[in-house]
Amino acid sequence: MSESLIEERFLSRLTDGPLAIAPGLAHYFVADASGAECIIRVAQSAPKGFIEKVHILYVPTPGENALITALYALGAKQFEHVPTIDEAIIKLGDWLSDAKMGSQLYLAGTEGLIGKAVAKGEECGLDHTAVQCEQRGSLARRVQCVHCKTMIENVTTQPTKCPSCDLLLLVRDHYSRRLAAFQGVCINAEDPSEVVEIKEVFK
């Protein structure tokens, strides 16, 4: 039964794709180390004057320096690097609370960064069509157990065990933008003795 329960497509997730410049008054980029090169790629192919409207928030991997320098060298209007994704999200909220209509948000990096930044953008009134994502690095998912509401970070297996209520969860492709997480639903609720093979699928 587990096979048929695993959905093929993401429906409610933002489309991943190579970031492309959209018309806008201001362009906000948020990336972690796995997404830094996406910003550099976009900036290098951008028309003249674009970089003066760019704001970059960057979360480096500890100890890494070269990408910070490379991003700084782009000459954006505003560039900041912060140690963690959570701090980046708080900073993004500060930036967006002063932002104007016509702002575009570009996200590049891991699922965790993208998910949280998308939720923050939505909270600040940014329409989802003004947000682009390019997922890089690990495909590990952030999952919320729908039964006990625990958030489980870095899920790579299907199904996965909830660390808090111990249920075996099917990681659905239903993605909540508000929670920035996928839904995990008990896979063997009718017959808890049913054994379901656990496979590593989100690498």
Binding site: A99, G125, L126
Partner: peptide, 11 residues
């Protein structure tokens, strides 16, 4: 006018 509206404005 349209360049100076807070995020989340509808026109």
């Amino acid at each position: 006018l349209l360049s100076d509206q807070p995020l989340g404005t509808h026109v």
